[in-house]
């Protein structure tokens, strides 16, 4: 499955300034694996040492939340994944 991952501008420094990245995979987890293969610096930002998504992030597929089973969620061809980080500044 070919999926697009849309990153926030704050990740630009970890993704060679690419914010819309094409990846392959059948689940969110597989898409992330392909994302990290292309941009290894993103893995440290997004994942815990145990390989789980850090709690500061949420994933949305076509604008809908994947909580609580983000990584096992299946994706289909043409889906768009957004990685959303918690912001609290005022």
């Amino acid at each position: 499955m070919s999926v697009e991952i849309a990153l926030s501008s704050i990740f630009a420094r970890y993704s060679d300034n690419q914010l819309n990245i094409k990846v392959e995979g059948n689940t969110v987890g597989e898409c992330f694996k392909d994302l990290f293969r292309q941009h290894p610096n993103l893995e440290k930002m997004l994942m815990t040492r145990e390989g789980k998504l850090q709690r500061a992030y949420d994933i949305y597929i076509n604008g809908e939340s994947t909580y609580p089973r983000e990584m096992t969620k299946p994706v289909k061809d043409g889906d768009k994944l957004n990685i959303v980080f918690i912001i609290y500044g005022g």
Partner: peptide
């Protein structure tokens, strides 16, 4: 609710 970070907001 509203929140900001850099050039981004919610």
């Amino acid at each position: 609710h509203g929140a900001v970070y850099g050039f981004e907001g919610r």
